[in-house]
């Protein structure tokens, strides 16, 4: 292994990673894709190591993905679901961190509803911490699996034009993807009504569009974001009907993109709201199921890298 690759103790976000870091993770993940397609999937790389999924916010998909990843590498995986409503903010988070730390885990995978909370927790533990999503801030493994999906299909990330469409305001997936795609030399656009875009979003290095026809013109990748139900009924957008009419992805709007443009979605999908079923299920152009497959491989790579970094327990052979 390259001793100079990925020397960070944690994976808290894409912000702060170099293109070399990102490429290294993607290369490691590539090897795990083949492992996952074999009948005999188990490796013993992390045998004897402890991975705790510490989720302060509900998630079945991401947590399951990390659990599969950890078990395929031979680790002992424990799932902890912490009810946020019973906590007083801040203080109990640190209490929880110190309690876990006393049990000597090797890797903590943490998801929390507040931006910055995972970083706070990482400062209180001796092991490695992977951010599985903090508030509206970052979701680095999602961006990495999206990047792997694109790279395997298109051969590269640099020079591609990617349109991220939908509720950017509340999306940690969008922020991590914007950071990663920019770091790897892609051109990024956001397409959304003004009520779903954060202030000064153009400073993140994106071109801003409020119209799908203009925003999707000649793009290589269309990345649709989920519109949460709380947002749907008049606070940020007036109705799902209007949202789908102007901003939902269907073949009519997809025509503006390149003829071989590909469709992505982090899931879970709201069919008929941000994406139409025909488009989502298009065998040739939709990468949505590949994204899930790449997710396990990327998380295996992240666990391997975290577990072998200095300060995170004995070296992995």
């Amino acid at each position: 292994m390259d001793p100079h690759a990925y020397r960070h103790r944690h994976l808290l976000g894409i912000e702060g990673l170099t293109p070399e870091d990102i490429t290294y993770v993607l290369d490691r993940a590539d090897t795990y894709v083949d492992v996952n397609r074999q009948a005999e999937k188990k490796k013993s790389l992390l045998r004897g190591r402890t991975l705790i999924n510490c989720f302060f916010e509900n998630s079945t998909r991401t947590r399951t993905s990390f659990e599969v990843a950890g078990k395929r590498l031979g680790a002992d995986v424990i799932n902890m679901a912490v009810a946020v409503s019973s906590m007083r903010k801040g203080e109990t988070l640190i209490d929880t961190a110190m309690t876990l730390n006393a049990m000597h885990p090797d890797v903590l995978v943490v998801r929390h509803p507040e931006s910055g909370a995972v970083q706070l927790l990482s400062e209180k533990v001796d092991c490695a911490v992977i951010n599985a999503g903090d508030g509206s801030h970052e979701h680095p493994t999602q961006a990495l699996l999206d990047a792997l999906t694109i790279r395997r299909r298109k051969g590269t990330l640099g020079g591609l034009t990617v349109a991220i469409c939908g509720d950017v305001l509340h999306s940690r997936v969008a922020r991590s993807n914007i950071a990663l795609l920019n770091a790897m030399g892609a051109r990024v656009r956001v397409v959304a009504p003004r009520t779903l875009l954060p202030a000064a979003v153009e400073h993140l290095g994106v071109e801003v569009f409020h119209d799908m026809a203009a925003g999707l013109a000649d793009v290589d990748i269309v990345m649709m974001l989920r519109l949460q139900s709380e947002r749907m009924h008049g606070s940020f957008v007036p109705s799902t009907r209007e949202y789908f009419h102007f901003f939902g992805l269907d073949y009519a709007k997809l025509k503006a993109a390149k003829p071989d443009a590909l469709i992505m979605h982090p899931g879970p999908m709201n069919r008929g709201v941000e994406i139409g079923s025909e488009v989502a299920d298009d065998i040739d152009r939709s990468l949505i199921r590949q994204q899930v497959e790449m997710g396990v491989a990327v998380r295996m790579a992240c666990l391997e890298i975290m577990a072998r970094n200095p300060g995170n327990g004995p070296p992995v052979t």
Binding site: T195, G234, S235, V237, P238, S239, R241, E242, H245, F246
Partner: peptide, 15 residues
């Protein structure tokens, strides 16, 4: 501008 003129939720301004 708001549903039912109640001052809370946006109407379908686009449509």
């Amino acid at each position: 501008a708001t549903k039912g003129l109640k001052g809370k939720e946006l109407t379908e301004i686009g449509l």
